[in-house]
Simulated assay, not measured.
Amino acid sequence: MSIWVVSDGRTGIENQSLGLAEAIADLAPATITRHVVRWKPAFDRLPSALKQPWMLQQGQHLLHAPPPDIWIASGRATLPLSVRMKGKTFVVQTQDPRWKHSAYDLIVAPEHDGLNGPNVLSITGSPHRITPERLKAAAPAFADKIAPLPHPRVAVMIGGTSKAFDLTLDHAALLADLIAETVDEKGGSLLVTFSRRTPLLPQTVMTQRLATLPGIIWDGAGENPLFAFLDAADHILVTEDSANMVTEAASTGKPVHVLPMVPLKPQAKFKRLHKALQDHGAARPFDGTLESWTYEPLRETARAARAILDAIAQR
């Protein structure tokens, strides 16, 4: 099969489609091609219903090329193209498109969004690329740096500012001090990554306060070590602002400790997601300790991949 992964190119958005495509390829022979859709700046903020192909800065060719067997798209930028591809290929849209819900063959939506419909598959969190095999494959590239680090090794995934949460300078300092105190007490080490949404000053403050402990703090340069960090970690600390990050962490089978952020508005959706992960046994609010526990790793991306193949087989 041929699978097109379509997004605006942002890593967090693209990884949803790419993770689904890779999960399908794990089940059936497939070739995966990544495509980026961008609209000309003057038209980017137009409602999807008003966007026309001539307004595209990148991706117009997708509407005229021989279609793939499966089109998997993520993000608002892809919606006008996904709608136009219906009938030419099997169209999968991740997240709630909030527009023309019947215009896609399948919507893979987070359960905490509460979206329902005959073409909706609800999953816990978001689709992603984390599998045990991919984590192990990434480990050798960073083995020389990680191997000397003492246990417990604590992977820390820090998000940032969004519509729902903020990471202020004071809160960043508070989190860093709490993490440092906990890891130092255990004689462990840190494996830290920051999101593209992490503001520069809070990131700088956290880096300065955590740098005295054994470990690695990725500064964004070179190859992303996240997969290797998750493979090596005994515990995972992740800020509560990202459904993607906490779902990825819960797919490892390792204890996931959720770090609080500064809320900017009511958090009903995130509360539903975190409760689902707690009910699954994967995640708990971080309480300043590193208690260990076990659970069945979350395998929602693989479940969605099987559902896509089943739906195609029934056409």
Score class of each variant (00 low, 15 high):
residue 250 A to Y: 04
residue 238 V to D: 00
residue 217 I to M: 06
residue 264 L to Y: 04
residue 211 A to M: 13
residue 228 A to W: 02
residue 212 T to S: 15
residue 232 A to S: 15
residue 190 L to M: 06
residue 217 I to A: 07
residue 253 G to Q: 06
residue 197 R to T: 15
residue 220 G to N: 09
residue 203 Q to M: 15
residue 254 K to P: 00
residue 213 L to C: 10
residue 216 I to Q: 00
residue 218 W to N: 04
residue 244 N to Y: 11
residue 208 Q to E: 15
residue 260 P to G: 04
residue 252 T to P: 03
residue 213 L to Q: 11
residue 228 A to N: 05
residue 204 T to Q: 15
residue 248 E to C: 02
residue 240 E to N: 07
residue 227 F to A: 08
residue 190 L to V: 05
residue 208 Q to D: 15
residue 258 V to E: 01
residue 208 Q to R: 14
residue 263 P to I: 11
residue 261 M to P: 03
residue 189 S to N: 13
residue 234 D to I: 02
residue 197 R to I: 15
residue 248 E to N: 06
residue 205 V to R: 13
residue 187 G to D: 13
residue 204 T to Y: 13
residue 249 A to N: 09
residue 190 L to F: 05
residue 250 A to H: 05
residue 263 P to V: 11
residue 211 A to Y: 13
residue 233 A to V: 00
residue 241 D to C: 10
residue 239 T to A: 07
residue 264 L to D: 05
residue 248 E to L: 03
residue 195 S to L: 06
residue 235 H to F: 04
residue 214 P to T: 13
residue 189 S to F: 13
residue 208 Q to G: 10
residue 233 A to G: 02
residue 264 L to Q: 14
residue 190 L to P: 00
residue 267 Q to Y: 06
residue 209 R to K: 15
residue 245 M to C: 10
residue 219 D to S: 14
residue 209 R to F: 14
residue 257 H to Y: 02
residue 206 M to E: 13
residue 185 E to C: 10
residue 201 L to P: 10
residue 251 S to V: 09
residue 251 S to A: 15
residue 226 L to M: 14
residue 192 V to P: 01
residue 236 I to K: 01
residue 192 V to L: 09
residue 256 V to K: 00
residue 246 V to F: 03
residue 185 E to Y: 11
residue 204 T to M: 14
residue 198 T to K: 09
residue 188 G to N: 03
residue 235 H to R: 04
residue 230 L to G: 00
residue 256 V to D: 00
residue 212 T to M: 14
residue 259 L to F: 02
residue 233 A to H: 00
residue 221 A to D: 10
residue 233 A to E: 00
residue 225 P to V: 08
residue 202 P to A: 09
residue 241 D to Y: 05
residue 193 T to L: 05
residue 225 P to F: 06
residue 241 D to W: 03
residue 221 A to R: 13
residue 240 E to A: 05
residue 237 L to T: 01
residue 202 P to H: 08
residue 250 A to I: 08
residue 252 T to S: 11
residue 248 E to W: 03
residue 199 P to K: 10
residue 216 I to M: 12
residue 241 D to V: 07
residue 261 M to D: 07
residue 188 G to Y: 01
residue 257 H to N: 04
residue 246 V to E: 02
residue 243 A to R: 07
residue 245 M to V: 11
residue 260 P to C: 05
residue 265 K to R: 15
residue 236 I to V: 14
residue 238 V to S: 02
residue 190 L to R: 00
residue 191 L to T: 01
residue 199 P to Y: 14
residue 197 R to N: 15
residue 197 R to Y: 14
residue 257 H to D: 01
residue 200 L to C: 10
residue 249 A to M: 12
residue 227 F to Y: 11
residue 217 I to F: 09
residue 228 A to R: 01
residue 203 Q to P: 09
residue 218 W to Y: 09
residue 209 R to G: 07
residue 212 T to C: 12
residue 244 N to W: 07
residue 228 A to V: 08
residue 248 E to V: 02
residue 251 S to P: 06
